[in-house]
């Protein structure tokens, strides 16, 4: 149903427009006075609406999809088995995984029977969708909270395995890991 067009009639005072300008100027003066006195406050967060990066950082939500990290389990063993499911499902085809068998003496470092020899994410292709995190059968890859990813060259934007593990250690130290996923309770009565 189309809305009928109503021609707004301007009163005489409205059509002069000067009074409307004055009302607007009162509003902007209020904003100006508030912010002017706010700008003298101590600390980097002076004006309430502005986050003055780099001194003043905002709190990031725990489910933010930022820079990736490869997870370790409670005993410190790598969870990734190098299956390559994340590489298969990635829409941008930016993950490269190479699988290798776990040798005899190295069982304390890896949780499974195989591990990933090379794991490379091309950050310039990645769209941070989170499919790799959802599809990993071992919950070995997670998207963390890193967002300061700018670099000078293309080579520095490739995430190798060391950088992925380093991200995990940093997140663990600063307590920024996501809480463990809890299975939803199935309803007991399925007939209704």
């Amino acid at each position: 149903m189309a809305k009928p067009v109503v021609e707004k009639k301007y009163s005489f005072l409205d059509s002069i427009y000067l009074f409307e300008i004055l009302k607007g100027m009162v509003l902007t003066m209020r904003h100006f006075m508030f912010n002017f006195f706010a700008s003298f406050r101590p600390g980097p967060h002076t004006i309430p609406t502005t986050w003055q990066y780099p001194e003043d950082r905002r709190e990031i939500s725990p489910i933010f999809r930022g820079e990736h990290m490869l997870m370790l389990d409670e005993q410190g063993r790598e969870l990734c088995v190098g299956c390559g499911m994340c590489a298969k499902i990635c829409p941008a085809k930016c993950i490269t995984v190479e699988m290798a068998k776990v040798k005899e003496g190295e069982e304390s470092k890896y949780a499974g029977k195989t591990h990933c020899k090379n794991f490379n994410i091309d950050l310039l292709r990645c769209i941070f969708c989170g499919f790799c995190e959802e599809t990993c059968p071992k919950s070995a890859i997670e998207l963390g909270q890193g967002y300061e990813l700018s670099r000078f060259t293309k080579e520095e934007c490739q995430l190798g395995k060391e950088r992925l593990l380093k991200n995990y250690h940093w997140a663990k130290k600063n307590n920024k890991l996501k809480p463990k996923k809890v299975e939803a309770e199935q309803p007991k009565d399925k007939k209704e």
Binding site: P54, C126, F128, Y147, L149, F152, K154, C157
Partner: peptide, 20 residues
């Protein structure tokens, strides 16, 4: 000169690139 990965990158990432 500077590459910013992200889809889309946060505004802070753009500010970091500008600072670089």
């Amino acid at each position: 000169d500077v590459y910013i990965p992200g889809c889309p990158p946060r505004p802070e990432a753009l500010l970091q690139a500008l600072i670089m």
